[in-house]
């Protein structure tokens, strides 16, 4: 069943690409993208490879202390994975902080498995087989176990509520050489940059559709990417300095967009352009 949901998401992505082509051009690069989509579809979503690697890692004792993630509490109790992602970010009293999935995984690696923070965050975004990211694999595994679960970020919890409000501020914060904010590119319906459709993330439907499909396997990169990566890369396009992995701004924006997605079924990891 989860595999099927993924295939439907993937198939609708292909339909979108074709619709764009009919309305616009058959630029060579677009044609290439479609060919890549077709290939990817035939083999199912490659995100499954990351999920499998992540599951293996989740269950195997790791790190200097030789501890498995069975003791890692993602908010639903030690070791519980099912449905956990749909209720993140949330406040963790043991850490005294609101955390998203990736930040929580790092916390468990440092505090339970004995890694240094530097080691745990050495490769947050992978690059080919030479530089694989454990975090991306773990995130793929954990998120896949929320497929079909309705997003339910605990916005009533005061710390989460606070982060949500700051995330909203951040979304509208204009700066840099180009005066861009998230809202510049994601604040209106039906806009696009070149031929890429831009979701209106200020609307609940837009946030739901976008948030519930990350992490995603990016065909153009041949990598599975997490929501932390998505934010990092949009800030790059925004001409801002580099977003620090797991920083408060990254968690605030995640809380804002995940909270806006509440009520929608989680459908990731999806497959995207």
């Amino acid at each position: 069943m989860p595999g099927m949901i993924r295939r439907i998401v993937a198939a609708s992505a292909v339909v979108c690409v074709f619709a764009g082509v009919v309305a616009d051009v058959f630029a060579q690069s677009t044609a290439d993208e479609i060919a890549k989509y077709r290939d990817a579809l035939q083999d199912g979503n490659p995100a499954e490879l990351w999920e499998a690697r992540g599951e293996e890692m989740w269950k195997t004792p790791r790190g200097p202390k030789h501890v498995a993630f069975a003791s890692c509490d993602l908010g639903q109790g030690a070791g519980v994975v099912k449905g956990a992602y749909a209720q993140l970010p949330r406040y963790f009293a043991d850490a005294g902080r609101v955390m998203d999935l990736e930040t929580r995984l790092v916390w468990c690696m440092v505090n339970q498995q004995g890694y240094t923070h530097a080691d745990a965050t050495k490769t947050v975004f992978g690059n080919g087989s030479a530089k694989r990211s454990d975090l991306e694999a773990l995130a793929a595994y954990v998120t896949s176990r929320s497929q079909g679960v309705k997003m339910n970020v605990p916005l009533d919890e005061p710390h989460v509520h606070d982060m949500y409000a700051l995330g909203e501020k951040m979304f509208y914060y204009r700066g840099g050489t180009h005066d861009f904010a998230c809202a510049t590119c994601h604040g209106d319906d039906g806009k696009r940059i070149r031929l890429q459709d831009l979701p209106n993330l200020t609307k609940v439907e837009g946030a739901q559709k976008a948030y519930t499909t990350w992490p995603a396997y990016r065909v153009s990169q041949g990598e599975l990417r997490t929501f932390q990566w998505r934010l990092n890369d949009c800030f790059r396009q925004q001409r801002f300095p580099e977003l620090v992995f797991g920083s408060d701004a990254s968690i605030a924006l995640t809380a804002y967009l995940a909270g806006r997605a509440n009520g929608a079924e989680y459908r990731g990891p999806a497959i995207k352009r």
Binding site: M170, R174, G175, P241, E242, V244, A249
Partner: peptide
């Protein structure tokens, strides 16, 4: 929000931290 921003970014090449400082126009528009 501004304080949070400052602690959440690192300078990378030409994109230095002063990119986060707003001028009057950016501040009002935000």
């Amino acid at each position: 929000a501004e304080a949070m921003l400052k602690s959440s970014f690192k300078a990378h090449g030409q994109a230095t931290l002063d990119r986060l400082d707003q001028d009057e126009t950016q501040r009002l528009c935000s």
